[in-house]
Design a protein around this nucleic acid. Structure first.
Lengths: 170, 170
DNA sequence: ATTGGAATGTCAACAACGCTGACTTAAAGT
DNA sequence: ACTTTAAGTCAGCGTTGTTGACATTCCAAT
C-alpha cells in the first residue's frame, strides 16, 4: 500500500519522498530533534524549580509584552489552572509583573521584570545558539524548507497563532 | 548584536537567515509544530490510560523487534524506572512480549504482540497521515531541508541513534 | 569457586505539568 | 438587574519524568 501511493507520478514528479519509510524517518527526526531543541533550556531550568512550562510562558510574554492571560492561554494551549500555577510562581519570584488592565479592569496584562528579562535572555540565548548552529550547517534553502514543513504540520489554529506572532514583529 | 552577525557576508552569501528574529521564528515553529505532531496519537491514546511514553515505546519496539531494554533506554533517553513502568503496563495488557535472551539471559528482548501491532498501526497511521499531508503540500526539496535542519539540531549521540535506525531499515 | 560488575527488576517517594470540576470575585455588556 | 466574561483559586487526579535503595540473575575474571 505504501509503495502503491509512492510509485504514482504526478506531473512527472517522483513521489518517492512520500513512502512510509520516508515519513517514519521524519517522525523519528522530529522526536530526536525536539529533545535537542529543549535540552539546553531544560539544563538551565533544572534546579531552579522551574520547567518547560515556565520557559514557554516567559518566552511568549517576552515576545508580546502586555499580553493578557487569556491570550497566553490560547497560544500555549493549556488550561487556565495549569497556566495559573506557573504564572503565580513567576509573579511570586519577581520575574513577571501582572498589571490590571486600564480599559478592561478584569484583564491582567503580563510583563517581564528585569529579572524575568535576564532569565529569558539566558534561556533564549542557549536555544538560539543551537538553532543558529544548525541553520549555519545546512544553509538558507534547507532552513526555508524546514519552516515550510513545520508550518504545514501545525493545526490550522496554531498556524494562525504562528503567523500572527510573526506579523506583530514585522 | 543580532544585526552585527546577520549583516556579515560570507563568500557573497547573505546571512540574513541567521538573524535572531529568524531563529525565534524557527523556535516558535518547532513549538507549534510539535504540538500538531503529537496531537493525533495523543487523541487516540487518551482514555486508554496510555500516554506518549507508551506510544514511543511501541514505536521503537515495532521498528526494532527483539531490541533489549537497555537499547530502548538509550534511544528514549529516560531512566529505566520510568521505562519499566511503561513496559510493565504494556506487557500486562498483552501489547508487548518480553522474552528472556538466549545468549545472555539477563537481557529481555521486546516484541509487539498482535494487539500491540494493531495499536502501533493505528497510532502511526494517524501520525503519518499528518506528515504525508505536510510533505505533499511543500514538496521534496522542502522535505530534504526539513530533515537536514532536524538532524543538525540533534545532540551528537541522538544523531548516531537516528542514523543507526535508518541503516537498520536500509 | 568465589568475587565483581553488568543487566534487569522493584519499591518508595517526589516533582513538573497536564487535566477536570466547582466556586468566587469583579467588571463589562445588554 | 441580569448575563457573560476574565481571572483566580482549591481540590483532586493521571502521566511521566526524576532519585535512591535494594534484590536477582548471570557473565567473566581472578
Amino acid at each position: 500500500m505504501a509503495d502503491a501511493s509512492a510509485s504514482q507520478v504526478l506531473g512527472g514528479e517522483s513521489l518517492l519522498y512520500l513512502t512510509d519509510e520516508q515519513l517514519r524517518q521524519g517522525i523519528e527526526a522530529m522526536f530526536f530533534a525536539y529533545r535537542g531543541f529543549t535540552a539546553d533550556p531544560d539544563r538551565i531550568l533544572q534546579g531552579l524549580s522551574y520547567g518547560r512550562a515556565h520557559h514557554r510562558a516567559i518566552h511568549f510574554i517576552h515576545c508580546a509584552p502586555g499580553t493578557t492571560v487569556n491570550n497566553l492561554l490560547n497560544i500555549l494551549g493549556v488550561t487556565k489552572q495549569s497556566l495559573n500555577r506557573v504564572l503565580r510562581t513567576l509573579v511570586e519570584d519577581g520575574l513577571v509583573e501582572s498589571r490590571i488592565g486600564r480599559a478592561d479592569k478584569r484583564e491582567r496584562h503580563l510583563y517581564l521584570t528585569e529579572a524575568g528579562d535576564a532569565l529569558e535572555k539566558q534561556l533564549s540565548d542557549a536555544q538560539r545558539a543551537r538553532m543558529r548552529s544548525a541553520y549555519r550547517q545546512v544553509g538558507p534553502e534547507a532552513v526555508a524548507g524546514f519552516k515550510q514543513v513545520l508550518e504545514a504540520m501545525m493545526d490550522p489554529e496554531m498556524q494562525r497563532q504562528y503567523q500572527r506572532l510573526r506579523e506583530n514583529r514585522g
